[in-house]
Amino acid sequence: MKVSVIVPIYKVERFIARCVTSLMKQTLQDVEYIFVDDATPDQSLSILQEVLVAYPERKKYVKILHHKDNQGLPAARNTGLEVSEGEYIFHCDSDDYVEPDMLETLYNEALKNNADIVWCDWFLTFGQNERYMKQPNYNTPLEAVKAMLGGAMKFNVWNKLVKRELYQKNAITFPAGFSMGEDMTMILPFVFAKKIHYVPKAFYHYVKTNSGAYTQNHSERHLKDLQYNVARVEMTLRQRLGASLDKEIAFFKLETKFPLLIMGTNSQQYTQWSELYPDANEFICQNTYISFRSRMLEWFAWKKQWWIVRLYYWVIIKFVYGVIYK
């Protein structure tokens, strides 16, 4: 198999038909499709089976695996990795969809450039429109790692094609039981990669359907998950590269807690921001990977000028991104 596509399934009956159809229509042949049922309680599996009937030529390349109990997204990705046989791995979330030439383009670019990892641009897709999300280009894995830590490059799982041997040889798995921030795992293959390549075209549609409320109960669990995943990445970086990325790791911690400033105007979120990785705050102005506006927002938060943080939320997040761009 050239590529193994891993698709976790849980409560996606509204979206999975579009996702699976887009995968079945891929122009690349010799693709293995691994669907992992994470004990979904809805009709997602029935819909999956209905779509697959229309593509009998793909049937022998499809694996459907089942979790007896819901284990979460990271565990589902790991289940797929364990049985994958493709030269490269591609992760696709089952509420998203892809362009038909995505796998062929990325795979051919990987071969052409002898790349361990290939990444591309993507679409942030809303109900009525979408935004083109441009990604940066870097020539070496270390440059890409620094950019992901600093926030200039996204460490999403679904816009990257990664050689399977990078996962196998370096025992890279996703953090089962710690779902929030699980995509930070994608930094790790870059740490071990020898050659990488960027494709300046968008193929993946990340469907933004629910801005969601960040409740107190969820935030406490989410923060614990985030801290676990940050520590996990930091440990690997220090084992592999020593103290050479101290500054970038501080940037990483700042980026991890940044959403607390733009997810609402709850004073408890601001308190959580202040208490999370306070030692990283002194690096705020040094992080040129992100915009000056974002650095200023963090700086005002550091100085506890919460009225400016609230104003930013209402003007930029709610009005500009919530009304104009949505």
Rank of each mutant, 00 (worst) to 15 (best):
Y289M: 06
L52S: 00
P56K: 03
F123S: 04
T185S: 14
W273S: 12
H205W: 11
R238E: 05
L311W: 13
E182K: 03
D246V: 01
E50D: 05
K194G: 15
F251S: 05
L28V: 10
R77Y: 12
I64M: 04
H67T: 05
N159T: 07
F178A: 11
M263C: 14
A110Y: 01
V62D: 01
T288W: 07
T140E: 03
Q305H: 10
L142I: 15
Y97M: 06
N139A: 15
T288Q: 10
K146N: 06
K195I: 08
E109Q: 11
M153G: 03
E282Q: 15
R58C: 02
Y97V: 05
K60D: 12
L226H: 01
P74A: 14
K134Y: 11
Q43C: 09
L188P: 05
F15P: 00
W122Y: 15
A280I: 03
V62Y: 00
K68H: 02
L111I: 09
V3S: 04
D96K: 00
K304T: 12
L124I: 14
K154I: 14
E275Q: 13
T215N: 06
I196C: 13
H218G: 13
R232P: 13
Y312H: 11
F155A: 10
V230D: 06
A231N: 08
N70K: 13
D42G: 01
Y97P: 01
R293H: 09
K224H: 05
Q286C: 02
P175Q: 11
Y277L: 08
F35C: 10
I316M: 08
F178Y: 11
S94Y: 02
N156E: 05
V62L: 03
K326P: 04
M1L: 14
E282V: 15
K63I: 04
I196Q: 09
F251A: 06
A243S: 10
W273A: 13
E255L: 05
T79D: 13
N170Y: 08
E143R: 01
V323Q: 09
P189R: 08
L223N: 15
H91D: 08
F203V: 10
F203Q: 11
E32T: 09
S44C: 03
Q305D: 02
M263T: 15
N78R: 02
K253S: 01
E143W: 02
N287K: 07
K247P: 04
V20K: 03
D116L: 04
F178E: 03
E32C: 12
L106D: 00
T209Q: 09
W314N: 12
K208E: 09
N281F: 07
A110D: 02
R131K: 15
L142C: 14
S46L: 04
G322S: 07
N113M: 03
E109T: 10
N137Y: 10
L124Q: 15
L245R: 04
T173V: 14
Q168N: 08
F174P: 05
I324N: 06
N137D: 11
V7F: 02
T256Y: 00
Y107S: 06
L254I: 09
F178V: 06
T79G: 04
Q227P: 03
